[in-house]
Design a protein around this nucleic acid. Structure first.
Lengths: 147, 147
DNA sequence: GCATGATCGTCAAGGTGCTGGACCAGATGG
DNA sequence: CCATCTGGTCCAGCACCTTGACGATCATGC
């Protein structure tokens, strides 16, 4: 059974590759070729409101410095604006611009599209059971750099 | 249904994170903390025989230069040796040393272990159906950098 | 009040890993 | 042969991450 377990590990990595590449391609097709998946995920998080650089760092699983740099890029692209937190002058709340909202939506669409591409192969039932199985795994929370 | 598709994409990435981290940890627990997953995969490939730098590059989905650098590290660690190809003086066949074989085996074990950790949660039947579902997806072949 | 310590964020320097361009040595085919 | 292709490496540059240090702002306890 060990041999099959090893193969399963590879199929999981393969699936993740398909997802990441699919998101990249989906973003590009929507005119956001410059947006990397990790940036898209950050935008989605920011879109949920009340988000700071630390929140982004936690979600992506990187240091606050790395998150700060990533956010800096998004600010430079006019996807994100920093606003002062009225309750805590240390915090700089992140908010989406109109362009940022478009990118966040595109990221979610691209992610959905990437797995929707499997529907012809797996069927709706297959996707559903896949969702059930993988959803039962530990939620480690942080995603991974380079995504 | 789109919302669920988006979530599924995230669960796939989460699963891949678990696999990669599990492999890292499994390698460390076997005394190969310095071996990165991508290096382990390269070792496994080299262990199959008749492997060149270009083959490694293809498997990992990186340029031949990157593969060359990765192999250079493995050679420096005495995991891999380069031998001349008697039929083609341009090719430098890669072979595993005893230490390299140990690392390759440890990588496969660690990968199997990473998904075996899901057995208590998903059950043997769950793993099997997961394998069936993910195995049906396109085999893009190349893995990803940084793994 | 006010010192002390924790927290948010940035700056700066450094490392790692990948890429594209250039190049050499060896193979290949008219 | 000679032009071309292929396997491999060297090199410069880049993208992204990390650790360390720091200023600024809260929060606590006396």
């Amino acid at each position: 059974m060990t041999k099959r377990d090893t193969d399963l590990a590879l199929t999981v990595l393969n699936a993740a590759t398909l997802v990441v590449d699919g998101i990249q391609e989906g973003l590009a097709r929507r005119g956001h070729a410059a947006v990397r998946p990790a940036q898209g995920f950050a935008l989605v998080r920011i879109g949920q409101g009340d988000t700071t650089v630390l929140d982004v760092a936690e979600q992506l699983g990187v240091t606050k410095q790395a998150a700060s740099q990533l956010v800096e890029v998004l600010v430079g692209r006019r996807h994100v604006k920093r606003v002062a937190d009225p309750n805590d002058a240390r915090r700089r709340l992140l908010t989406l611009t109109a362009r940022g909202r478009a990118c966040a939506a595109a990221t979610e669409e691209a992610a959905a599209e990437a797995v929707a591409a499997w529907r012809p192969t797996l069927g709706a039932a297959g996707l559903k059971s896949l969702y059930g199985l993988l959803g039962a795994l530990d939620r480690t929370g942080p995603l991974r750099p380079a995504w």
